[in-house]
Design a protein around this nucleic acid. Structure first.
Lengths: 152, 152
DNA sequence: CTGTAACTGATAATACTTTTCAATTAGCAG
DNA sequence: CTGCTAATTGAAAAGTATTATCAGTTACAG
């Protein structure tokens, strides 16, 4: 088991969840890939080493891992989300509008650099031709700050 | 008809599409709201003044408008996209993780400011408690630059 | 006004995800 | 190690979002 697998599985245990072979397999499928994978892709990957696993179990596990913020869930175009290792915090995306490929980048220097500088640097490093950028902040609006967890 | 409606409808005509009452109604529903609306919400809004319109037509119109980049399509959590007036270019989002509300902000000063400064400013202006940010660049990866439009 | 290609709406089909529930199993107590 | 119990699994069904099909209708160029 890779160290990254272990981090996730022990976190599951710490939260009181059982460590089933199916869950381990899903975790491993995610951590062993650099790419963002759809639920179906993860299901197919897991099925190779773990035939008989249900797609339902994959969905359940992904939902659980995403809720615990042990993996990163991404919604771009298309009509299904994709998942990758790592938390969603300070972890950013470079999305290809041609093939849908997603490359992640960490950006500790976001504090120092502005977006346009970063765009140039990323383009050089990744070979992407960058056409657009989207900046999205997540948080709680004024109303939801007052009414805690009512609609969550 | 509002000026913003007219911009969109004339653009449709310019592209060779017919200007049906249904299309105008969908356009109006979008431009007359500040919020990001789901296809179903748009359908319900349009149905008030235009009973009998089909949900299918709403979907088709949204897809068309988004392709022509006359409206902005957004995928966040949940399981359906939402649409709002304005193009997607340099137009950013503040998403409430409590109620799903989306506030847009334009950011011409993204060039001058770094993300952390911007976060502080937005938080003060909007009243949001900002917990996280996601920066997403869109473009074409090296392969897709070489093989134009093969998979688009 | 007329013809025609584009558009609409109903139905059906497809895709993705969640619910339900009986059978199984991880992990604890002894 | 053995048995217990609640959590988990997988199959089937249901639910939700979206797209395809197609006959009838309509915008608009001429």
């Amino acid at each position: 088991m890779k160290p990254s697998d272990r981090n996730i599985t022990t976190a599951l245990r710490r939260h009181g969840y059982k460590l089933t072979p199916q869950r381990c397999a899903v975790v491993h499928a995610i951590t062993s890939s650099q790419d963002h994978l759809t639920p179906t892709a993860i299901f197919e990957k897991v099925s190779q080493n773990h035939p008989g696993i249900g797609l339902v179990t994959v969905y359940r596990t992904l939902k659980l891992l995403a809720e615990l913020e042990l993996i990163c869930e991404l919604h771009t175009g298309g009509n299904c989300p994709s998942y990758t290792a790592g938390t969603s915090h300070h972890h950013h995306h470079l999305v290809c509008s041609g093939c849908g490929k997603v490359v992640d980048f960490a950006s500790p220097r976001l504090i120092e650099h502005n977006v346009v500088e970063l765009e140039g640097r990323l383009s050089r490093e990744s070979g992407f031709r960058i056409d657009d950028h989207l900046l999205e902040f997540t948080g709680l609006c004024q109303l939801c700050q007052k009414a805690p967890a009512s609609s969550v």
